[in-house]
């Protein structure tokens, strides 16, 4: 038996929104500790890793680890019917052939319930090593979203370079070149406005802007985003969900021409 109740159901809706443009069918793995997802996009250049701790839930019971195989377009349609302040309840039997979803709202007194057929999804799990990265940058997630959205008018590829100067995003195309430099900035009283750059050695890597833009769908989940880079390794783009979990994206760099 799996049963979980999340007072702020909107968090789960935002998680679904943050991955649905990258993958269609996905397993949500339930254990006694957490709900988690690990999946790759069909081109195998990006990986999403999500974790939401059992402590995020008001009630969490998972007798036996199970995988809920979901079709995200269908899940997304159901979540469109969830109100902003609704509590979400998930339930599944150990056989896990269907998932019950309930959206409750005490104020309006409404209870919506849905039964969703589950699928058996064959998932390849990647062994992601725990690496010490050469550069780690924390910045406002809204600023990152604006930069990768704006640079799309210049080209398809974004060069991200971290140097002593700061963190530079560059794109080149037919009309010319654009560079946006973020310097370290800890002047604001609000910590979520800070830009912190922790650099052991300079790193410069190229990435597809299309993917970086997919990742910014997670912006509503977190005021800050953490970027981690090492030469020749996939970039990590992490959106922490309070102290309760995260959505992390890994994107393979482009090969040098």
């Amino acid at each position: 038996m799996f049963e979980a109740r999340l007072a702020n159901g909107n968090i789960f809706k935002m998680i679904v929104e943050s991955i649905r443009e990258l993958v269609v069918d996905v397993n949500i793995d339930c254990s006694t500790e957490e709900l988690s997802i690990q999946c790759m996009d069909s081109a195998h250049v990006a990986l999403v890793s999500m974790s939401l701790s059992q402590s995020a839930f008001d009630h969490f019971r998972c007798d036996r680890s199970l995988s809920l195989g979901l079709n995200l377009p269908n899940v997304s349609k159901i979540f469109k019917m969830m109100g902003r302040d609704d509590t979400m309840v998930l339930k599944a039997e150990d056989s896990a052939d269907k998932l019950m979803l309930m959206f409750e709202n005490d104020k309006s007194g409404t209870i919506a319930d849905f039964e969703l057929k589950l699928m058996a999804i064959e998932a390849e799990q990647l062994g992601v090593p725990d690496t010490a990265y050469k550069c780690s940058i924390s910045m406002p997630s809204s600023e990152f979203q604006r930069i990768v959205r704006d640079l799309q008018v210049m080209g398809d590829t974004c060069k991200i370079s971290c140097t002593k100067e700061g963190l530079k995003f560059s794109a080149t195309g037919q009309i010319g070149t654009g560079n946006i430099l973020m310097r370290q900035n800890v002047a604001s009283e609000k910590e979520e406005d800070h830009v912190t750059i922790d650099m052991e050695e300079p790193v410069e890597l190229n990435f597809a802007l299309r993917y970086l833009n997919f990742f910014t769908k997670a912006t509503p989940l977190s005021p800050t985003v953490i970027l981690k880079m090492s030469p020749g390794l996939p970039i990590v783009i992490e959106y922490p969900i309070e102290q309760l979990g995260h959505v992390k994206y890994y994107l393979a760099p482009k090969m040098e021409e």
Binding site: M40, A43, H44, V45, A46, L47, E124, Q125, L126, G127, V128, P129, D156, T157, N206, A208, L233, P234, Y250, A252, P253, K254, M255, E256, E257
Partner: peptide
Amino acid sequence: QNRQYNLDAFFGLK
């Protein structure tokens, strides 16, 4: 156009 690496090359399947 420069190609994107494949993630399998970095992490490998479990």
